[in-house]
Amino acid sequence: MNFKKQKHSPGKIHSSNTLETYDEMFKRLKKNKKGAFVPFIVAGDPEFETSLQIVKTLLESGADALEIGFAFSDPVADGPTIQESDLRALDSGMNTQKSFEFIKRIREFTSIPIGLLVYYNLIYKKGVDEFYKEAKRCGVTSILSADLPPEEAEEALQAAKKYNINQIFLVAHTTQKNRLDKICQMASGFIYLVSVMGVTGARKEVQNSTVDLIKRIRNHSDLPVMVGFGISKSSHVKDVIQAGAQGAIVGSAIIEIISKNHDKPELMLQKIKKETSKMKEATLIEVI
């Protein structure tokens, strides 16, 4: 199915004192018969100011929410594309404090939900309560730690509750029914569905089992489902939204553009704009 290319108004960039919740975002999108397009980048890749330009470009493309990673030296749940992104950010001098600073800067021009993707050691080292407190202060909507399953999440959940931040959990193909129930009870904001076996990174197509899993979660819980890991083309975005997911999270596909073009920032931003605009267009729900 071909979509007519729409022109996006850069008027999307707004500033507001009231930040949008995921709930409000999903409601807004539902009214417009659209799913959420949520790009992921690592804060400060390739360096602070360029990274901020990338965020602005993503907003111009119609990002409905943002996922921002804090760079970590050993990102085991990520593939090579995102690991390199982490290392580029670290090499440019990013650290936890600057990453929070980055969120604050984003908040100067948008009120859409911002989720953090943070490996747990960065949270643990700062102190769980302290980390969530700072996150709240900077306007963070949700936190996801890829290496923090429900078994170890008690302290994080307490802090999330205290500071009114959504704690996001992953669900995978391998997640059994009982566990799915438990995760759905603990999670808030949305369920992050891992669409592939393996780590983050671009894939050719969406697996059939992803479609089944979306349906399985929809039967289990009222929480919206967003699909990530391996969503790298507008057709993937379309597929998972047609299958009933409320949104798609796209990381590696964007970061690959950064990776290949970061020495030519103008070209990089153009390419990101082109690619992500297509993805946003693919979130339109078709009535079959």
Partner: peptide, 9 residues
Amino acid sequence: IFAPELLIP
């Protein structure tokens, strides 16, 4: 068990 969800099973 600080493991990604995929590995839990």
